[in-house]
Each structure stands twice: as C-alpha cells, then as structure tokens.
Design a protein around this nucleic acid. Structure first.
Lengths: 128, 128
DNA sequence: ACAAAAGTCAAGTCGTTACTTAACTGTTGG
DNA sequence: CCAACAGTTAAGTAACGACTTGACTTTTGT
C-alpha cells in the first residue's frame, strides 16, 4: 500500500507532516502569501512552496496568484471531510459499544433467567 | 521539522498511511486480532505487527494479549482529539468568513454613508 | 531601466519508513 | 509430546519524502 489512492488519502498524508499542519494552523487565521507562511518556519522558501503544492493537491488549500504573490487560503470543506472520516469510524465503534452495553444491561437484569438463551444480537458478523 | 513532537503529531502521522487507515476502518467494526487484521491486507504479518505498534504508540488503538493472540481495539477518544484539531482550524477560518460577510453587509447597506469611517474590525492582527 | 522581491524549477542529498525474509518464543489442540 | 498457530524481533533493502542549493522568471518600486 505504497501508492496514494483516494482524496482522503491525499488529505491525511498532507496532514501527516508537522510543517504542513503548522501551515494549516497559520492559514486558519486567514489567507497568507507563501513568503508570509515561510517567515516563521525554519526552512527555505522553496521547501515551503513544495509543502503548499502538496496541500493544494490534497484539496486542503486553494491558491491564487496575483502579480508576483501567491495567496493561499484554507478550504474548510476538505477539513470537514477529514473530520467526517474520523467521526464515522468513531460512530461505528461507539455504536458497537452501546449495543454491547445494552446487552450487558439485559444480561445482568435477567441474569440467571436464561443462561442458554439466544442473546445473539450485535456480537459477530453483521448482515451488511 | 523532522522529529515527532506532540501527541497530535503521532496521531496524524499514523493516519497518514493508507494501510494503517485500513486497519482503523477494520477496527471500527470491532476488535480484531493481528492475524485477522492481516488477512485482507496484501502484506506480511510482520508488517502488520509494525503498523499496529505505530497505531498503539499514537494512542489510536489499544491492544491486550491473552494467550498467543493479541486483540486490538480502537480508542475513540484519540479519534475525537484529531476531529477536534480539524474542527478548531475550520471554526477559526469560518469565524473569519462570517465576520467578513458581516462586514460586507454593513458596507453595502450603509454604502456611501461613510467611506472614510473606521470599519476596522477583523481584518488583520488579532490581539491574542 | 534596474535592483530587489516573490516565486518557480531542477537536481541532488539524506534520513525515514514500509516492507521483506528468516530465525525465534510462547501457546494450544490433538 | 509435538506440530501448527500467533506473534515477535532483527536485519536488511528499496522507495519515498523533506529539504537544500543554485539558476531562472516575472513583477514591482524607485
């Protein structure tokens, strides 16, 4: 699994780098030129340009060039997509938990009633 | 910026790999052993073990070993932390947008009233 | 017109990381 | 007891990714 695939792949790969996240943080405060982004960073301008390219390819930032200055800004919707990806995994897992806890409730309240009874909901092998 | 720093750094770095995300997806459906995680993947068991170690170090998954089988499960709270990081960037940005739009409203409704008036809110240099 | 500013592009270096194979440790069913 | 199972560890390889330097282009202020 060494090749990039979906958009979400690009997004998370882009966010996987600390410098790029620093750039995202900065852009959260508002649009900025490449040089402005570079100023607080301990790397060369050229390196920042490369990071911006990665961020742009991932759909996390948009850039527009006017004259000699390229202005970068966040695309919040892509942030949202990443959020949703995470939220979905979490929701699935927490859904499972809830079902398990519900099952525990039933088990402990009925308890001795039916030890061999088919309490088979939500353990393994979901239908789809 | 080549060294890992905060927890969030570990988390996003872990999520930056497609194979690891596939594992997270799988674990979203419920706990699984290392072998179970490995089955659908086109890589060796040893490689999967390494990925699991990265995920565990990042705080995204917890593992427990019973007998010879190590069972892995998601830690939803870490997912939530990552979600919040993204949500915060987005909120900041969208807050800016709202303020800008509000400003536009004012500008276009008042319009010619005071071209030289100090409408200086939310443009540059936030206090803290 | 010219120099500085703001990027861009192309190589090339170097550390990191994903992966493999192979040898090894514990565990479990028969 | 022993064979298969589940995983672990170590060492090595190959590719990737972050970064640098240097040469070049375009724009802008004076």
């Amino acid at each position: 699994m060494h090749q990039p695939a979906s958009t979400i792949d690009h997004v998370f790969h882009a966010l996987g780098d600390a410098t790029r996240r620093a750039i995202v943080v900065q852009l959260g405060r508002g649009p900025a030129s490449v040089s402005e982004l570079a100023t607080p960073l301990p790397i060369s301008l050229a390196a920042v340009v490369q990071h911006v390219q990665v961020l742009e390819a991932s759909g996390l930032v948009a850039t527009r060039k006017q004259g000699r200055v390229r202005t970068c800004s966040l695309i919040p919707n892509t942030l949202l997509e990443a959020e949703r990806w995470l939220a979905q995994r979490r929701a699935l897992w927490e859904g499972r938990l809830e079902r398990l806890e519900a099952l525990m409730q039933v088990r402990t309240s009925i308890d001795h009633a039916a030890t061999t009874a088919p309490v088979d909901a939500a353990t393994e092998e979901e239908p789809a």
